[in-house]
Design a protein around this nucleic acid. Sequence first.
DNA 1: TCTTAAATGATAATGATTCTCATCTAATAT
DNA 2: ATATTAGATGAGAATCATTATCATTTAAGA
Lengths: 134, 134
Amino acid sequence: MLSEHGLKITPQRIAILDVIMALNCHPTADIICDHLRINYPHISIGTIYKTLDAFLSKGIIKKVQSESDTARYDGVHERHHHLYCAETERIEDYYDDGLNQMVNDYLRKKRIKNFVMEDFKIQITGKFTDKTTN
Amino acid sequence: MLSEHGLKITPQRIAILDVIMALNCHPTADIICDHLRINYPHISIGTIYKTLDAFLSKGIIKKVQSESDTARYDGVHERHHHLYCAETERIEDYYDDGLNQMVNDYLRKKRIKNFVMEDFKIQITGKFTDKTTN
DNA sequence: TCTTAAATGATAATGATTCTCATCTAATAT
DNA sequence: ATATTAGATGAGAATCATTATCATTTAAGA
């Protein structure tokens, strides 16, 4: 996966990618760091940020769009949207192919003036009625 | 508007609200500060942040969801979505009642498990083909 | 194995946002 | 109109996330 994108393979990068894929929540850099330190006590937070940037620019991960001040990352590639509770900052993935197609068709046909659409994301805000598992 | 929400009316708050409504882009706290300083050279950036927070908690303004590190604010109340170019960080409002209704109907009918929807927002990412006016 | 460009780690620097606290002021009661 | 007071302001310090610096180390190809 790393070499596919022309990134040098290092133990740190493998570990970081593993953690993001294993935690399939939407972790902050600090949360990623906490998990890495278990097996990798000396990894530097700077390295984590630089690696996350490298992954972002290659499209291996995405930043989650949110209103909060600390960045959160997402390793899921399939097209999906987010359920978001402003109160608790909890974010869950929402998969819905029917919704994707419907909105995609609509926007493609619409042809927005002065804009070429590449992608879209829906944030569905509200309240969760169950408990977190993380 | 301020008294409706139980906020004390001060010249600073009036000025801040005026600036947000006048600039109908999606300004950062710093940009708001720059504009305020023209008529209000002594206003403190701390006051601006505190006032923006007060406005947010009353629902007078909204934070824009984005991937960037600096918060941007939005004073528009009608339901709308955002056109966003990652490269230039430009954000434009996108109004589309047909889209609103279609997605709203779909999601209401769907009844997402363990979640009560309150609202949704669509970020349409891509590239602008014209020049900014700001 | 050698070479080298790139990655890492430690730490300093930056920039946005929040906090503190003494002073001031809007709103209400007098 | 004046006094009272809870809440707002301004200036600056403090915090937190993120980025930059730079000496050292390492992956990858020759």
